[in-house]
Every structure is written in structure tokens, then in C-alpha cells.
Simulated scan of single mutants.
Amino acid sequence: MDINPYHNVLEDVQALLSGTLLVALAIVLFRQAGLLTGGTPGLTFLAYYASGVPFGVLYFLINIPFYIFAFLALGRAFAFKTFCAVALLSLYSEWLPHWIRVESIDPVFAAILGGLLAGAGLLMLIRHQASLGGIGVLAMYLQQRHGWRAGSLQMIADAFIVCGALFIVDQERVVLSILGALVLNMVLAVNHRPGRYFGQ
């Protein structure tokens, strides 16, 4: 039986604040372990490792074209929530290192826990008709328009992005980044299917 709730404003605000915080915590773990992830955060990690420009700044700028696409393809409400989610993640990713410090973490554990946190955060955002921009916007659009599973689409895109890391970070970190991306997408693929839960 499909669940189709209508979320009120307070519920949406809670989801935006909590979902982006979970993803930001994942980014802290990935960054501490020298890993990256898929999607637009993965592209941002590549730019961050290559340039040293703050992650939050790069992430917000990379997403600018996708705000326009989200508005045109998925509507004003989705575009606004996505803009808020991206802005929150950009801020969280810069603030969290001042609030929490991870002195040491096993890279394998960082990949697994980071993937779980990011997947749970993304799932929360998707269920409240928001995304973290970029590839997530395209995946949501194709799911709504053609019924393709967002998790599967995200996994394919993530594979290309993580493989691109071979030109910037060492192979061991790439392998662990792939593990993190697989865990993240497993959470999405198992828990989010077309028609199962599509709140407003």
C-alpha cells in the first residue's frame, strides 16, 4: 500500500535541517579520511581536493545552474526547498569542523558510516520533495517523469564521478570512496521507490 502524506511547513523545515545535517556529518567523515562521495558533493570534493577552495563555497556555486532546472522541471516548491537544502549543507560543511573534531577514524568505517548517514539524509530530503541539487535533481525528474528509480540513476552517476577521482587521489581512497557510494545508494535503492512515498 502506497503512502502519500502531505507535509506541513514545520515538517518540511525539520526535514531540511535534519537531512542536511546528516549529510554534512558524512562529509566531515569523508573529508577526515581523505575520501569523497558521488553526486554533486562528489564533484565538489574533486574540486576541493584539486583547488583547496572551501567545500561549502564550491558546493553552492556548482549548484547554481541546477536551481534553474529544478524550477523549470519540478516546480517552484521543489526548487525553493532544494535551494534551502544546498545552502544549509554549504553552511553546515563549513561550521561543523568548528563544532566537532574527528581526530582519527578508520577509513573503511568512515566510508560505511558516511554512506549510511548521507543516504539517510538524502532519503529524508527526497521524501519532503527536496534534493541536494545537481544530479539528484535530474534523478528526481526522471523518476517523476518516467518512473525510473532515483537510487539506481544516482548509483550510475556516482560510479562515473568516483572513477574520476583516480586522477586526483590514490587508488585505495578511490576504492573506499566507491564503498561509501555503494552504501549510500543501497540506502536509497532499498528505501525509496517510485510511488512508495512521495510527500508534498
Results as ranks from 00 to 15, higher is better:
Ala87Asp: 12
Val169Asp: 01
Ser51Cys: 09
Phe167Cys: 13
Ala85Glu: 06
Arg173Phe: 07
Ser18Arg: 11
Leu88Ala: 07
Asn191Gln: 07
Trp95Arg: 03
Phe160Val: 13
Met186Ser: 12
Asp170Asn: 09
Met124Gly: 07
Leu35Thr: 04
Ile64Ser: 06
Val183His: 01
Ala139Ser: 15
Val28Lys: 02
Leu91Trp: 07
Phe45Ala: 09
Glu94Arg: 06
Tyr6Gln: 12
Leu58Glu: 03
Arg127Lys: 10
Tyr197Val: 12
Arg173Gln: 08
Val169Cys: 08
Thr40Tyr: 07
Val162Leu: 00
Thr82Gln: 10
Ile168Gly: 05
Tyr92Trp: 07
Val9Arg: 10
Leu142Ser: 11
Thr20Trp: 05
Gly19Cys: 12
Val183Thr: 05
His146Cys: 11
Gln32Arg: 06
Gly151Asn: 02
Thr44Cys: 04
Ala110Met: 03
His98Thr: 01
Pro5Gly: 13
Ala111Phe: 02
Phe69Glu: 05
Thr37Ala: 01
Val183Glu: 02
Ser104His: 09
Ile178Ser: 10
Leu179Lys: 01
Phe80Pro: 10
Gly75His: 03
Val187Trp: 02
Pro54Asn: 14
Glu94Phe: 00
Trp148Leu: 14
Asn191Arg: 05
Leu117Met: 14
Thr82Phe: 00
Thr37Gly: 13
Asp106Trp: 00
Gly115His: 01
Leu91Phe: 13
His128Gln: 11
Leu153Gly: 15
Arg149Asp: 03
Gln32Val: 12
Pro5Val: 15
Leu91Met: 13
Trp148Arg: 13
Ser152Glu: 05
His146Met: 13
Leu179Trp: 03
Ala181Ile: 00
Ile62Cys: 12
Gln14His: 13
Val169Arg: 06
Asn8Met: 07
Val86Phe: 02
Ser104Thr: 08
Ala85Tyr: 04
Trp99Phe: 04
His98Phe: 01
Ala189Arg: 14
Ile62Arg: 12
Tyr67Asn: 09
Ala150Met: 08
Gln129Leu: 15
Ser177Ile: 06
Arg127Ser: 14
Tyr48Ser: 08
Leu116Lys: 09
Gln200Pro: 14
Ile168Thr: 05
Met124His: 11
Gly136Cys: 13
Ile27Gly: 02
Tyr6Ser: 15
Ala26Ile: 06
Ala189Ser: 14
Ser18Lys: 04
Ser131Gly: 05
Asn4Trp: 15
Gly195Ile: 08
Phe66Asn: 01
Arg76Thr: 15
Ile62Tyr: 06
Leu117Lys: 03
Ile3Met: 10
Asp106Leu: 00
Leu132Glu: 00
Phe66Tyr: 15
Val23Leu: 11
Thr20Glu: 00
Gly56Pro: 04
Glu103Phe: 10
Val183Gly: 11
Phe71Tyr: 12
Val162Asp: 06
Asp158Leu: 07
Leu16Ser: 14
Ile161Pro: 11
Phe80Gly: 15
Thr20Ala: 05
His98Tyr: 04
Ile135Pro: 03
Leu123Cys: 12
Gln171Lys: 13
Leu74Lys: 10
Tyr59Leu: 09
Tyr197Ile: 10
Cys163Ala: 07
Pro107His: 01
Asn63Met: 14
Leu91Thr: 01
Val86Asn: 08
Phe55Leu: 01
Ala26Tyr: 06
Gly133Ala: 08
Val174Leu: 03
Pro54Ser: 14
Gly164Asp: 03
Gln14Lys: 12
Leu22Trp: 07
Gly34Lys: 09
Glu94Trp: 01
